[in-house]
């Protein structure tokens, strides 16, 4: 215990004992904050108090000194609890820094370059509900008239989900071809995820490959929300169904693939369940609502359409989306 603190305490105590004013009490309160900053433990405060009283009133009966000694003993465990709290606070701070770091790494990892293809307008919006995004979107593009797109949703959140995503990314990078077909991509990623992920974590993924010269989209799904096909000439919406099990459940899973050819103004709308599983006070937001929102802006650029769908769904849910939201539109122009 530094000498100057003891002297200061004695002075403040003496002032208060002489005159019990608000002002003198206030000085004491401020001093106690300083003691906390200096890491002075509760038992040290009492022993300081005892020393100060002895200086000021040395003729007090023994019973008073014994009672201080007893009180010092009583406070020792409080001191330990305080130390523990301080080390927890420090640890929490470290974890927060690590978490921020992980979120940054994830953001870097998630970075993907929008492909640029003749006759294809792409809109993309991916908004996490919390700090870490459980949705993953990745484009594979070689500037050769083909572009692959993966839309994935990791079931399971936080750090493990982010780690899972990096596995998907490296799986996709290892294929390293915009020509890779959906059923092959999904099989490869399934084997990676199945081997490495724990039992309660899974990934749903939609993969599509677009061939610009033929305006042909080939797609497959691993347990993912079906993409939507909008036909400009009929104004109709259809679900692009493709059978396939979630990634990471069974190594034996096989994946289908199907193709559609896009005409001018046609759109393929890919999304995660954060888009379709919205709920308002009246109940679920049905798919028809999403169709309607897209139709309202069908003649606008793809980015304007995804933004409109997001804005409206957010508004319906009182600006409180419960799940990560990812929406991608491929529009043939």
């Amino acid at each position: 215990m530094p000498q100057h603190i003891e002297a200061q305490y004695q002075e403040i105590l003496n002032e208060y004992v002489k005159k019990q004013t608000e002002q003198n009490l206030y000085v004491g309160q401020n001093f106690s904050r300083q003691l906390i900053l200096e890491n002075i433990s509760p038992e040290e405060v009492i022993s300081m108090h005892k020393a100060a009283i002895r200086e000021l009133y040395s003729d007090l009966p023994d019973v008073v000194w014994h009672s201080f000694d007893f009180l010092i003993e009583m406070m020792i465990n409080y001191g330990l609890a305080l130390q523990e709290r301080q080390s927890l606070l420090k640890r929490q701070e470290e974890l927060k820094v690590e978490m921020d770091l992980a979120a940054n790494v994830q953001e870097t990892l998630l970075k993907t370059k929008l492909p640029s293809l003749d006759g294809l307008d792409i809109g993309l919006l991916s908004i996490p509900a919390k700090k870490m995004n459980g949705d993953y979107i990745y484009f594979v593009s070689d500037y050769d008239g083909y572009a692959g797109v993966a839309v994935a949703d990791v079931i399971g959140k936080g750090l493990p989900a982010a780690l899972c995503m990096s596995m998907i990314k490296f799986g996709m990078d290892s294929l390293n071809s915009s020509h890779a077909m959906p059923k092959d991509v999904l099989s490869v990623i399934n084997r990676i995820v199945e081997k490495s992920v724990d039992d309660s974590m899974f990934v749903s993924m939609f993969y599509a490959n677009y061939d610009a010269s033929a305006a042909k989209l080939t797609y497959g799904s691993a347990g993912h929300e079906p993409a939507i096909l909008y036909r400009a000439n009929t104004g109709g919406f259809d679900e692009l169904e493709a059978k396939g099990l979630l990634l990471g459940v069974s190594p034996a899973a096989v994946y289908e693939e199907h193709s559609v050819t896009l005409g001018k103004g046609d759109m393929v709308i890919m999304m995660t369940d954060g888009v379709t599983e919205g709920r308002t006070e009246e109940g679920f937001i049905e798919r028809d609502v999403i169709y309607e929102l897209i139709e309202q802006k069908k003649d606008e650029p793809a980015q304007a359409i995804v933004q409109h769908v997001y804005d409206e769904l957010e508004r319906m849910q009182n600006a409180e989306l419960q799940d990560d939201f990812t929406l991608v539109i491929y529009k043939k122009v």
Partner: peptide, 10 residues
């Protein structure tokens, strides 16, 4: 939702 699904699959 999908979290619930995860519980049953596990």
């Amino acid at each position: 939702d999908s979290t619930g699904l995860g519980v049953f699959v596990a």
